[in-house]
Simulated assay, not measured.
Amino acid sequence: MAEAGLRFGIQLPVQSQSTIYCEHWETEAGPAELAQAAQAADRLGYAYVACCDHVAIPRRLAGAMGATWYDPVSTLGWLAALTTRTRLLSHVAVAPLRHPLLSAKQYATLDLLSGGRLLLGVGAGHVPEEFEALGVDFHRRGAILDETVQALATALTDEYPEHPGPRFPFSGLAVSPRPVQRPRPPIWVGGSSPAAVRRAARLGEGWLSQGDRVGDLSAQLRLIADVREQSGRSGPFAVNAIPPALYVGEPGWDTGRHALTGKPERLAEALSAYGALGVTHLQLRPRSRSLAEYLEQLEAVATDVLPLVRS
């Protein structure tokens, strides 16, 4: 089921500022700091950089979620021009909010401009007011996402796609430019509910866990394997997990009780547990008090920790 080897990407700082993970320095940062983070990840060999997605945040949630969420297509397109190797992941685009032809156009263009580096991560969303403002039925978002993923797959594969779906029928319309990747860029589906996991197994080429604990992943992976077998699906399948935040060394400041801190060997052992389960990708986020410390930690993880995991 899994792709060979364990790969490591990062959730980009600055571009989303939820209080769950945002560092204090990020609230005063902007494009310059974001670019430095992406270019460091590119230079250090991280497999991907990831950008989140929300269109609008209601006042009742702004305290916890923050109001700053960069647009993933614009952000990843800009970073494509500033990087050369790292892949570009939307984690996750709230796909039901947009017509799949529009998304196919945007992401096919992004794949072309980046030289085939797109990883298209999609999810159902969770903010009712966002759906209401855009005229989309929040309570049917799962069914809408099902059809959206199928329509996206068709539109990214065929220049003249044929999709007879009930909500998004289209036929005889050219969708060009075409993506570089063949037959199309991979679609990874996010979400940790049973319905989301089944959707990823049925429709996607990968699953984006939303922070499941390592002890819970075995059951999720068994469900994926069962659904893929029942659906007659085979071939490579990516499993992306998000471990706790990392800090290499003794921080000397409060990094929170869930952060993984200490010697490289300790961090490598914790990360290796994910690979042993069948996880193929880990999305990492170093703890930091400044951009300088973030970049130092990003390099320490890449040079001191990850080689121990790979060995």
Score class of each variant (00 low, 15 high):
Ala143Asp: 10
Ala151Gln: 08
Ala174Pro: 05
Val122Pro: 03
Gly116Gln: 05
Ala133Glu: 15
Ile187Glu: 05
Pro183Lys: 06
Leu156Val: 12
Val180Asn: 13
Pro185Arg: 01
Val175Arg: 00
Pro169Phe: 10
Leu156Ser: 14
Gly165Ile: 04
Phe131Glu: 02
Arg178Cys: 13
Val136Met: 03
Leu145Ile: 10
Asp158Thr: 05
Pro169Leu: 06
His139Asp: 15
Arg117Glu: 04
Pro128Val: 12
Gly116Met: 06
His126Arg: 07
Gly116Asn: 04
Pro161Trp: 01
Glu147Gln: 10
Ser176Arg: 12
Gln181Ser: 11
Gln150Cys: 13
Tyr160Ser: 09
Phe168Tyr: 13
Pro166Leu: 10
Arg141Gln: 07
Leu152Pro: 00
Glu129Ile: 06
Thr157Asn: 12
Val127Gly: 00
Asp158Phe: 08
Thr148Val: 02
Arg140Val: 00
Pro128Gln: 06
Gly116Ile: 02
Leu152Glu: 02
Ala155Met: 15
Gly123Leu: 07
Phe138Arg: 11
Arg117Ile: 03
Ala174His: 12
Leu156Lys: 11
Arg178His: 08
Glu130Lys: 11
Gln150Leu: 15
Ser176Lys: 14
His163Thr: 10
Leu173Ile: 12
Thr154Trp: 04
Leu145Asn: 06
Ala143Phe: 06
Phe170Thr: 10
Gly123Ala: 06
Leu156Asn: 14
Pro179Asn: 07
Thr148Ser: 02
Arg140Ile: 06
Gly165Cys: 05
Leu118Asp: 01
Pro128Cys: 09
Gln150Thr: 15
Gly125Lys: 02
Arg141Leu: 10
His163Met: 12
Leu156Pro: 14
Arg184Pro: 07
Gly121Ile: 03
Leu152Phe: 05
Arg141Pro: 03
Gly123Ile: 05
Phe168Cys: 07
Leu173Pro: 01
Glu129Phe: 05
Val136His: 00
Arg117Tyr: 05
Pro161Ile: 07
Leu119Lys: 00
Glu129Gly: 08
Phe138Ala: 03
Val175Phe: 02
His126Lys: 10
Ala124Val: 14
